[in-house]
Design a protein around this nucleic acid. Structure first.
Lengths: 220, 220
DNA sequence: TATGGATCCATA
DNA sequence: TATGGATCCATA
């Protein structure tokens, strides 16, 4: 796949050049890993590029599913030393009580910096419903607020790719009006939040469709 | 239905007693309307209370659907002068361009104060997926940030009611860890955000289940 | 076309 | 039991 856009909504670190997180060695490492992993996201599985079957996913049973898409991405990150599905730390006893035992779930991908100067970096590859992207952003924001995350990235299919996938998938256009509130998170010294849009390299009716599962209302 | 909890996450108005939004006449009016409307939320439709068929909604075809539930609530608010499904104002030309034409959708319920001292108040009755609740909260936050809303309420089924409804419905417990970031919205002088949990008055196997899906729309 | 929603699935 | 996700629906 290729990267269509990469926006920084929050970019702050007193130790970076000009106080920017994106001007730190830690970010450089993350940045390189993510670029490599997106490049390794291919379809069909044995290809060296991502070719999409260009059928609209708007209607039932049509277009492409999403689960298999991210496989190349996550596999690459694991090879580069990232961990998958890392949950937020358990709350203290005090806190657990006030939260009534609830805590946010796992981050898709999680990287602990070897030097431990700053907290880990997380990436959410979001091919769920657009509403789920809102939760993912809130989850990153909470992690930054609490300090167990220093930065996070949300990856969504581009406005050109999304229509070929399951209806109502997250997409950059629909998230844009909300950028203003997410830019407001201001509670920590060190923080990064970015949104990446990724896109297929090619379109062809000669590749198989990405199969759909039987989740949600498909299951009848 | 009855109100199990009503939490104020943001409560600010320089003109209210102690600077609180909840200590203004505008809030008193909204508060009274919402209480009345929740009281008028009943099942079955001709009842004077809300009695739920206490079957778990976890599995397919079991438990209760959600669409018909809010009918008494919204009908009451309309009678009290509220409007339904009010969208955010169209962006200016400049802004629309940067947003690429995207704007957030409608608020469930919307009330314009007769005196127009402060911007309208909105209520989201959320019986969608929990992820959808995150979007609803973000939408209220955006409205407050932009100034076209002065306050908002999210209504979700209580932790006791939710298990009888469609799986993964919004619920107070699962939203709790995120309160900390929502409390951070600090860009405006006047702002209110609250979360209400509502619950059935009674349980009985003698009432019909709230229908799911297409049946639900037929039932009203 | 665009946006909120409703429903059920997979997995720890 | 708990949480992230995937899929399709209704309607303006």
């Amino acid at each position: 796949m290729k990267i269509i856009s990469w926006e920084h909504l929050i970019d702050r670190d007193p130790q970076g050049t000009n106080g920017l997180y994106t001007e730190t060695p830690e970010y450089s490492a993350v940045h390189a890993d993510v670029i490599q992993a997106i490049g390794n996201t291919v379809w069909p599985p044995d290809s060296d590029r991502f070719t999409i079957y260009p059928e609209s996913g708007k209607k039932r049973g049509m277009g492409n599913g999403v689960t298999p898409i991210k496989l190349g991405f996550t596999t690459t990150l694991v090879e580069l030393g990232w961990t998958l599905e890392k949950r937020a730390p358990r709350a203290t006893n005090e806190e657990a009580k006030s939260l009534r035992g609830s805590r946010p779930g796992a981050f898709d991908c999680h990287f602990e910096f070897p030097n431990e100067r700053i907290s880990p970096f997380v990436v959410e590859w979001e091919t769920g419903n657009i509403a789920s992207s809102h939760r993912a952003v809130n989850r990153i924001g909470l992690g930054i607020h609490k300090g167990y995350v220093s930065g996070g990235l949300l990856i969504v299919p581009s406005n050109k790719l999304a229509p070929y996938l399951t209806d109502r998938i997250g997409n950059p256009r629909e998230l844009r009006p909300y950028h203003d509130i997410w830019k407001q998170w201001t509670s920590t010294e060190v923080a990064y939040f970015g949104i990446i849009a990724v896109e297929h390299d090619d379109e062809s009716f000669d590749v198989p469709k990405v199969p759909k599962g039987t989740d949600g209302r498909a299951a009848r």
